[in-house]
């Protein structure tokens, strides 16, 4: 239905603070683009600029090929789901959903048809006569979604919509949002600080840091080839192990493959580690000795928190483990699972 194009978008606040320092993203039609990053990275500001709730200091934002810098949120034909839902507390669920349509002068029977259809999609029919305060968190979330869907806009904007829900409900709603977005085929921008949400929802994943795009791409590509140490430590839970290289050498290393370029940082994911001397016979990989500082059995897997190579690393082992705190273990990671980063933090 619509593409969203950001070209060198900047946001400078009155005090001179630059929240967004030149971001260019092209979101294809019907794609779900997730902006992820730590708090203060400018992802929400960027979303609010797309919504038209913040002015754009420089650069252009286009929706469906049309530059929308100068037009207000109403005319942009977008719908937004807010973190705190922002339901109108004095209106019934029905009116909450109908309000946007009424303001646009939609005929009454058309409003009724659309509200009821949306309510059916979201299983809200029995709640239409209730007020927001009589609803649970998950139901409010649904109403907020319904308010966006019923308008049938060009673009959906989600501002951390699941962060107020409990973990179980969050997982449920995540799946629902994804399938709903697929079904409706509406281009969407989704802001979150939760890397799991980002990974599972995104068609296009944008990792932001300090007002800049750190990496942009398909979620698994980013996971497999993080462009910088920031991305490496932000995407994936627990994050990638990063150890410093000194002159191409790693402390505690038994074997170390040839270090590419002028790398100063070596990285490997906790799940790419193999434990024990008999792990793999291939010497083409990193083998180092680690001292176990802590063991966290989760059930399906266990995490070993170790000191090794002049830093801290996390090792994931499947199922239960017999390893005890204080054990010395050889850790092995295959050559192709190793990542190298230069002194500027970029991948080499």
């Amino acid at each position: 239905m619509a593409t969203v194009d950001l070209k060198d978008v900047r946001k400078v606040y009155a005090g001179g603070v630059e929240a967004v320092k030149g971001v260019s993203i092209a979101i294809p039609d019907k794609a779900l683009c997730v902006l992820v990053g730590p708090s203060g990275c400018g992802k929400s500001t960027l979303l609010r600029m797309i919504a038209g709730l913040e002015t754009i200091s420089a650069g252009t934002c286009s929706i469906d090929g049309k530059v929308v810098n100068a037009i207000g949120p109403t005319e942009r034909d977008i719908a937004m789901v807010f973190q705190n839902y922002a339901l109108y507390p004095h209106m019934k669920v029905y009116d909450n959903m109908a309000y946007g349509l009424r303001n646009r002068g939609t005929p009454k029977d058309e409003i009724d048809k659309r509200v009821r259809a949306t309510a059916q999609t979201l299983e809200l029919e029995h709640l239409l006569e209730r007020r927001p305060r009589e609803l649970s968190g998950g139901q409010r979330q649904r109403v907020a979604m319904g308010r966006a869907i019923v308008r049938n806009p060009k673009v959906f904007l989600f501002d951390e919509p699941l962060s107020n829900l409990d973990a179980k409900l969050r997982g449920q709603m995540r799946v629902e949002i994804k399938s709903l977005q697929r079904k409706l085929g509406v281009t969407s921008v989704y802001v979150t600080h939760d890397q799991l949400e980002a990974m599972t929802l995104a068609d296009v994943l944008v990792v932001m840091n300090a007002g800049l795009v750190e990496q942009l791409g398909a979620p698994l590509d980013i996971y497999e080839k993080p462009a910088s140490t920031f991305v490496a430590s932000f995407i994936g839970a627990p994050p990638m192990n990063l150890l410093p290289l000194r002159g191409g050498q790693l402390e505690d290393a038994i074997t170390l493959p040839e270090v590419s370029g002028n790398a100063t940082m070596i990285g490997f994911r906790p799940e790419d580690c193999e434990v024990g001397a008999d792990g793999a016979t291939s010497s083409d990989g990193l083998r180092l000795m680690a001292r176990v500082d802590g063991v966290e059995p989760v059930g399906s897997e266990s995490f070993l928190y170790c000191a090794a190579g002049g830093g801290k690393i996390v090792v994931r082992v499947a199922g239960r483990t017999e390893v005890l705190v204080g054990d010395q273990l050889p850790i092995f990671a295959r050559r192709e699972k190793l990542h190298f980063f230069g002194s500027d933090g970029k991948r080499v």
Partner: peptide, 25 residues
């Protein structure tokens, strides 16, 4: 909450509508 004001803006409520439909009630 500011989000309520913004939700109304996104929903196409101008200043007068916002006053009449949201603020007064």
């Amino acid at each position: 909450p500011g989000e309520l004001v913004e939700a109304a803006r996104v929903d196409g409520a101008g200043p007068w509508r916002f006053f009449k439909d949201i603020l007064l009630p």
